Simulated assay, not measured.
Amino acid sequence: MGFSAEWLALRDPADRAARDVALLQRAATAAGPAPLVVDLGCGTGATWHALAPLLPEDTRWRLVDNDPALLDIARAVVGEAAECIVADLGDLDALPLEGATLITASALLDLMPEAWLSGLAQRLEAPFYAALSYDGRMEWTRPDPRDDAVTAAFNLHQRSDKGLGPALGPDAVDRAEALFAAQGFSVFRAESPWRLGPDMAELQHELTRGIAVAACETGMADAESWQRDRHEAADRSSCIVGHADFLAVPPVRPRETAHV
Rank of each mutant, 00 (worst) to 15 (best):
H231V: 07
A14T: 07
G2W: 14
Q122F: 11
L24K: 03
P56H: 14
P53D: 06
S160T: 15
D245Y: 09
A94F: 11
A9Y: 09
D20I: 05
Q183L: 07
R26A: 10
L89K: 08
L207R: 08
L168E: 01
D174K: 14
D67P: 01
Q25C: 02
R137F: 14
M138K: 08
G99D: 06
I103Y: 06
A14R: 06
I103W: 05
V241N: 01
E224H: 12
H243A: 03
A131K: 08
T257S: 07
L51Y: 09
D135G: 03
R146P: 00
A22E: 10
V252C: 00
Y134A: 03
I103A: 09
F180Y: 13
G163T: 13
H157E: 09
V150Y: 07
Y134K: 08
L164D: 02
P166L: 14
D67W: 07
A115R: 15
D174E: 15
F180L: 10
A181E: 12
D245G: 02
P193Q: 07
S237V: 10
A221C: 00
A215K: 10
C42V: 07
F188M: 09
F128H: 04
T47C: 04
A27Y: 04
C239N: 04
G169Y: 11
L102H: 03
H231I: 06
R230D: 01
S225Y: 08
P127V: 04
P13M: 08
G219W: 14
R255K: 11
A130V: 05
S106G: 15
T104D: 00
A105K: 03
L95D: 01
I85D: 00
